[in-house]
Structure formats: structure tokens, C-alpha cells
Design a protein around this nucleic acid. Structure first.
Lengths: 191, 191
DNA sequence: CGGTCTCTTGACGGAGTTCAAAGCTAGTGG
DNA sequence: CCACTAGCTTTGAACTCCGTCAAGAGACCG
């Protein structure tokens, strides 16, 4: 029914096709147009989202009114404002589609019921969060270790297709500097 | 037997005293002197650690030979090189005791056996990692949003006892700037 | 086409780094 | 219990990376 999600779940736990069908009942398929928002600051984050097609980004708006992207999610990644999702308090982030995107939404209530009814999914999500946490630790280390210029070149080498799908100014914002400076870096590396 | 850990587990799942006693069997109590290392770069991270007394820090050494602290753990926090712990590959971080410290170590094998035998612990760890992940997201946002000076003042207000337990140069390294600059910030705020 | 969104350029300024040296502080051994 | 040393913090000057601002050049979409 949802082959991408099924494959992803099966890399962490083994679940029969019958149980899998039940599990899928908790999810809702959702389609988003480019630039459409899934979550706005001030709302509670109602669901956690698994991307099956396209790209989501999470961002916030700083005191100067500038958007800061903190995370991207492409196919096979989960995305949510974790804190708001857990506690159902007002979100500090926005979630927006970078291109036309399809997601599987697991609403907060369904999430709890799913984990209650299917203990294997506790393990699945434990693994998912463990990896996500490990990934942010690596990212934090990398940020500390390298200059903005090095960051960009590393990103460019390790995620080449990504660069072509996402506008420059979002890359700059994600890497933590201005579009103007990114432009300067690119100019240097051409000549 | 381990009241701090018991209380912590019980905030997420309810477990009988009998089962709890079994669970504790998987842990090993360990004592560390100030500056003693629990993990060195290049080793695999053998266990995940729950701090019952004292402070641990996680750090790495950058290309200039300078130590960069990326995380602290005080009482009631878990600490590990998550990536190395999961995959048993060589660690990228060091873990060191900031003061004389006591931990409960859950070795990698015991971790898997524990989760197998006690499904409630899957939920517990799912919640722990979910929160840890949410916390790093908040931290990332905060770093983007504020100057180094603001970072320090916020830290100072929200963790006053912590400042007295940890030397300045570790605080500076954790917040992402140099001890010299921290000194300058402090000078400003006194006058 | 015409307008909006995105990327580039260059001048200037400031936050934070680097380096080197001196002043403190706390722990250690005699 | 004092003296010594190693580790920690402070100072100041020079420097650099990167942000800000403002304006122009492309590029994409209806």
C-alpha cells in the first residue's frame, strides 16, 4: 500500500504483510503544492510526516524577519516539530514544501494508538529517533569543525542532486550563512 | 537499587518493582575520577551511560588540536556517542568526567537483550531519544537566533549552578567561541 | 513580454579569532 | 602550612571572516 514506508519500517523491524496493512490504517496520505505550509508557528504540530515524494523544510523566522532553515527532509525521512508534537504546545517552527510533495501523516492520537497496538513500532521509532539524534550530533560536530566555505563544499560533494532541487538561498540558510556570502564562495571556486 | 534511574524510567513508563529489579541487572555501576575518560576517539563506544552523580562532557579535537565540547550530561541524563554505539564503529568523540562522577553503564549487548526482554524499555528509550532530539533542535534554533554574547547570558540565567561546577573554558567551547572572548563578555557585564 | 523571484557584486563595518604575555588560583608535595 | 607549579583566566592589538545594505542582472512563470 505504501511501499516506501513499508521498506523503511522493514529495515529496522520485521512485520508481516497483514500487520503492515493494519499499521497503514493509522496514516493519512497528503499532497502539498510547492511553498504550501504543513505547520505554522503558533499552532500545535498535529502530526509527524514521512516524505514519500518531494522535499520538506523546517524553518523559523528570526527577530530580523529572516527565515532560517534548520532541516530538510527528502524521500524516506521523517519530519515534525518534535517538541511541539510530543507536548502539543505551540510550535516554534514552520514546515513547508520546497517542491510539490507527498507525505504520509501520522496524527498525534493515531501515533499513540499505533504504538499501543503494535509494540514493534516502538522499536521502529526508537531506532528512527536514535538515528536522527546521531545525525544531528554529527552535524553539530561538522559545523564546529569547519568554516562556512568548507561546509558548502562538503555539502556540494555529498549531496549533488540535492543542490539542483533546492534554491541557493535555502542552502545558505540551512548551512548558516547569507545568500550573498554563498555567492562569493561559488565565485571563488569557479575561477 | 538505583533510585535515580528508577524514578527517571517511571516518568515515561510504569514498571513493577520486581521487573525493575530484573532491569537493573543489565547495568553496571562505574566510578570515574575528574578528567578520567570513558571513551576515546578511535575506540568503539561500548556502552550508553546514565549519570547518577557528577558531570560528563562529550568533545572532539579539531584539526588545530583544540578540544571542542559538544555536550554535557549531569545527573539524570544519558550520554553516549550515539552513532558509534549503534553501529559499533570507531567513535568520533571523547567522553570525559568533568568532576568525580558516577554512572550506570548499559553495554551494547546488554542494551539489546534488555530491550528484547522488556518491551516497556523500548518505549522508555523511544521517549528518551525523542526528547534528546527535540532538545538539540531547540539548541540549534537558539544558536542561529542569537549572538554569542546572548547565548552566554541565557546560559548563565538558565543554568546558574552549572556555571559554578564547570570551568569557563569548557563553557566557552560548548557555546562555540573562545575563552578569550568569553572573558571579554564577562568584563562587559560586570561594568 | 512584464513582473516577481532569485542570484550576483562591491563597499563597509563589526563580531569574534588569534597570538603572546601576564596575572590568578588551586592543588600537590615537601 | 607554606611554596611551587600547572592549569585557568584576563588583556590588548592586529586581523579576518562574514553580515549588512543597496543596486543591478538574470531567470522563470503567467
Amino acid at each position: 500500500m505504501y511501499p516506501l514506508l513499508q521498506a523503511h519500517i522493514n529495515t529496522f523491524v520485521s512485520i508481516s504483510d497483514d500487520e503492515m496493512a493494519e499499521i497503514f490504517g493509522y496514516f493519512k496520505h497528503q499532497t502539498l503544492k510547492k511553498k504550501e505550509n504543513l505547520l505554522n508557528e503558533g499552532q500545535a504540530c498535529k502530526a509527524t510526516y514521512f516524505v514519500t515524494k518531494g522535499i520538506l523544510r523546517k524553518y523559523f523566522i528570526n527577530e530580523k524577519g529572516v527565515e532560517q532553515t534548520t532541516e530538510f527532509a527528502i524521500e524516506n525521512w521523517w519530519m515534525t516539530d518534535t517538541f511541539s508534537f510530543i507536548s502539543q504546545t505551540t510550535a516554534e517552527f514552520y514546515i513547508q514544501a520546497v517542491e510539490n510533495t507527498e507525505v504520509l501523516a501520522l496524527p498525534r492520537d493515531a501515533h499513540d494508538q499505533l504504538l499501543e497496538a503494535h509494540p514493534a513500532m516502538e522499536k521502529y521509532f526508537r531506532c528512527v529517533y536514535q538515528r536522527a539524534y546521531a545525525a544531528t550530533q554529527k552535524r553539530l560536530k561538522f559545523r564546529h569543525e569547519h568554516s562556512s566555505e568548507e561546509l558548502y563544499h562538503f555539502f556540494r560533494k555529498s549531496q549533488p542532486e540535492f543542490l539542483q532541487r533546492v534554491p541557493q538561498y535555502l542552502i545558505a540558510s540551512y548551512l548558516g550563512f547569507t545568500p550573498e556570502y554563498l555567492s562569493e564562495i561559488r565565485k571563488k571556486s569557479i575561477s
